[in-house]
């Protein structure tokens, strides 16, 4: 099978999910924003946002059920590095109003200039970081 077929098919599903959430609920499928919103229970959207996150967590087991194997998850970074990275990702996505889903999948689809700028910046710093770690290693 063409190695790019599963990534493309997976991408189509992700796009379908974003389109569904927008057309049905009027909501942007930005994971960092949805997750952060769970810390503010009581908002009108809390239940639906929690349901989305629950569905997201059920995604990999559902995949395992359908495919007969779990998706591969190889984590090279150690725990301290993961904790550091998690802090940066959590703080950075709130400060920057979004992540790969909100700015990437949804923002690029709306041709939002803010999102285009954000995607270019996080791709650049992500690539620079991996390159820097490669030099240090």
């Amino acid at each position: 099978m063409n190695p790019y077929l599963p990534p493309l098919a997976g991408g189509l599903l992700i796009g379908l999910s974003a389109a569904m959430l927008l057309l049905l609920n009027g909501r942007i499928a930005g994971i960092s924003g949805l997750v952060a919103g769970l810390g503010r229970p009581g908002s009108a959207r809390w239940l639906a946002d929690a349901a989305f996150v629950l569905g997201l967590i059920l995604g990999p087991p559902a995949f395992a059920l359908l495919a007969g194997h779990w998706p591969e998850i190889r984590i090279a970074a150690g725990l301290p590095a993961l904790a550091f990275a998690g802090l940066l990702v959590g703080f950075g996505t709130r400060l920057g109003s979004g992540c790969t889903s909100g700015h990437g999948v949804c923002g690029l689809a709306r041709l939002s200039l803010r999102s285009i700028a954000a995607v270019l910046v996080f791709l650049a710093t992500g690539m620079l970081t991996v390159a820097a770690l490669r030099v240090l290693a």
Binding site: A85, F122, G126
Partner: peptide
């Protein structure tokens, strides 16, 4: 904030390979 936040997120993404979703 948009640029600085995206930059920090990218660094964390590069270190871990994880984004929020």
């Amino acid at each position: 904030p948009l640029i600085f936040g995206a930059a920090l997120f990218g660094i964390g993404w590069g270190v871990s390979g994880f984004c929020p979703g």
